[in-house]
Design a protein around this nucleic acid. Structure first.
Lengths: 125, 125
DNA sequence: GCATGTACCATATGGAGTAGTGGTACATAT
DNA sequence: ATATGTACCACTACTCCATATGGTACATGC
């Protein structure tokens, strides 16, 4: 099933995501399979339901699972394919390249951080 | 001269940078002019010398001023030109474009932040 | 001796963001 | 009635970073 390491520095919702993705890769979870409900899984692992909901929400965005309202959550038809095209993977690559570019301009890491926070926070001024 | 607003949310060293750049643009400071020494300016404004030193250091990196060791700091020969090609300006533009790209992928702002922090800290794990 | 820029050391403060918990509420359909 | 996902609210604990402060020290040249 799913095991959680409360002492790990890895966030709980991330542990959930990784384990579910792994289960899909190893085909212990196949498209159409129903996942435990949010409240049920939270109860089993003795963690907050919002933490599980967050994991499910991200998994759904990545099209690894599908949430069908009152019917529950299921493994996405294209789950096996979608577990591979990883958004955070792409983010890491692009960011590494972009940050190298910023540094090449001559910017300090501190400056880059400040400019980043300035740009990503709602700068609707 | 130079006026500092201690109650402003704008960092002190940034206020210094902006005012000196402005003075260069308005030609109340011209290339070759000697700037007040770090300790002297800090004393006048009643702020820490490290704060002034930080402003001077960034101004020198942008080639707006020149520090000549024991002789003091002077307005850079190309200051008038260099005040315009602004590094933070370029940073802001590039970051705005890049962050828009990340969002277009489907990444959450929270994810972008996490990936950014991960990428900029030399996380040789 | 004295002032220059510079480079370390350290510390305190405040803000922002993450992670997680908890409660409540809603429309849905069985 | 019951369970589903979901969307709010609020709160705590924690970490990281920026900012600013203070002290000490150094080589330099006047």
């Amino acid at each position: 099933m799913i095991a959680i390491d409360l002492s790990s520095s890895e966030p709980l919702f991330n542990q959930l995501i990784q384990q579910i993705k792994k289960a899909v890769e190893q085909k212990s979870l196949i498209p159409g399979d129903q996942l435990p409900s949010i409240r049920q899984l939270a109860s089993e692992l003795d963690i907050n339901s919002k933490t599980v909901a967050k994991a499910y929400s991200l998994l759904e965005r990545d099209k690894v699972i599908e949430s069908k309202g009152y019917r529950g959550s299921f493994v996405h038809p294209d789950a096996l394919h979608n577990v591979q095209l990883n958004i955070s993977e792409r983010l890491n690559n692009e960011l590494a390249r972009d940050i190298a570019r910023y540094r090449a301009i001559g910017a300090t890491d501190s400056e880059i951080r400040i400019a980043f926070n300035h740009a990503i926070s709602n700068d609707k001024r």
